[in-house]
Amino acid sequence: MPYNSIAQTDIKQFDIEIPLYPQPKSQHKVALIGCGAIGRVQASAYKECGWKVVALCDIKLERAESFQKELFPDAYITANYSDVLSDPSVDIVDLALHVDIRPSVVKAALKAGKNVMSQKPFVEAISDGLELCELAKQGSNTLAVNQNGRFAPHFYALREVVDKGHIGEIVSADFNVYWPHDLIMKGHPLAEVEHLICYDFAIHWFDLVATLFAGKQARSVYAKATTTPQQVIHVPTLVSVNIDFGDAQVSINMRASSHHEDSGSYHVCGTQGVASLEGGSLGASDRPIKVVNHKGQANISVTPDWFPAAFKGTMGDLMSAIDHKRRPQGTPESCLEGLRLCFAAIESSRSGQPVDPRQVERI
Results as ranks from 00 to 15, higher is better:
Glu192Leu: 13
Val193Ser: 01
Val193Trp: 03
His195Ile: 01
Cys198His: 00
Tyr199Val: 04
Tyr199Gln: 00
Tyr199Leu: 03
Tyr199His: 08
Phe201Asp: 00
Ala202Asn: 06
Ala202Pro: 00
Ala202Leu: 09
Ile203Met: 13
His204Trp: 03
His204Gln: 10
His204Ile: 05
Trp205Leu: 13
Trp205Val: 10
Val209Gln: 01
Val209Ala: 02
Val209Asp: 07
Ala210Leu: 05
Thr211Lys: 11
Leu212Lys: 03
Phe213Tyr: 13
Ala214Arg: 12
Ala214His: 11
Gly215Trp: 06
Gly215Asp: 08
Lys216Asp: 11
Ala218Phe: 07
Ala218Ser: 14
Ser220Trp: 07
Val221Gly: 08
Val221Arg: 03
Val221Phe: 05
Tyr222Ser: 15
Ala223Leu: 04
Ala223Arg: 02
Ala225Arg: 14
Ala225Cys: 11
Thr226Val: 02
Thr227Pro: 06
Thr227Ile: 14
Thr227Arg: 11
Thr228Asn: 02
Pro229Leu: 05
Gln230Glu: 14
Gln231Arg: 10
Val232Lys: 12
Val232Arg: 09
Val232Asn: 11
Ile233Val: 15
His234Leu: 10
Val235Tyr: 07
Pro236Phe: 03
Pro236Arg: 04
Thr237Pro: 04
Thr237Gly: 01
Leu238Tyr: 08
Leu238Asp: 04
Ser240Arg: 04
Ser240Asp: 14
Ser240Glu: 14
Val241Ser: 01
Val241Leu: 00
Val241Asp: 00
Val241Lys: 01
Ile243Lys: 00
Ile243Tyr: 01
Phe245Lys: 06
Gly246Asp: 05
Gln249Trp: 10
Ser251Cys: 08
Ser251His: 05
Ser251Ala: 11
Met254Asn: 07
Arg255Asn: 15
Arg255Phe: 04
Ala256Glu: 13
Ala256Gly: 15
Ser257Asp: 10
Ser257Trp: 05
Ser258Thr: 15
His259Met: 10
His260Trp: 11
His260Val: 12
Glu261Ala: 14
Glu261Asn: 14
Ser265Val: 04
Tyr266Arg: 12
Tyr266Ser: 06
Val268Asn: 06
Cys269Gln: 12
Gly270Asp: 10
Gly270Ala: 10
Gln272Phe: 02
Val274His: 06
Ser276Asn: 10
Ser276Glu: 14
Ser276Asp: 06
Leu277Asp: 02
Leu277Asn: 09
Gly280Cys: 11
Gly280Thr: 15
Leu282Ile: 13
Ala284Trp: 08
Ser285Glu: 12
Asp286Met: 14
Arg287Gly: 03
Ile289Asp: 06
Val292Ile: 15
Asn293Thr: 04
Ile300Gly: 07
Ser301Cys: 10
Val302Lys: 08
Thr303Gln: 09
Asp305Leu: 09
Asp305Thr: 12
Trp306Ile: 03
Phe307Val: 12
Ala309Ile: 09
Ala310Cys: 15
Phe311Thr: 05
Phe311Met: 13
Lys312Asn: 06
Lys312Pro: 02
Lys312Arg: 14
Gly313Met: 02
Gly313Ile: 08
Thr314Ile: 12
Met315Leu: 15
Met315Gly: 01
Met315Lys: 05
Gly316Pro: 08
Gly316Thr: 04
Gly316Leu: 01
Gly316Lys: 06
Asp317Gln: 02
Asp317Lys: 08
Leu318Cys: 08
Leu318Ile: 04
Ala321Ser: 15
Ile322Phe: 10
Ile322Asp: 07
Asp323His: 06
His324Trp: 03
Lys325Glu: 14
Lys325Cys: 11
Arg327Met: 11
Arg327His: 05
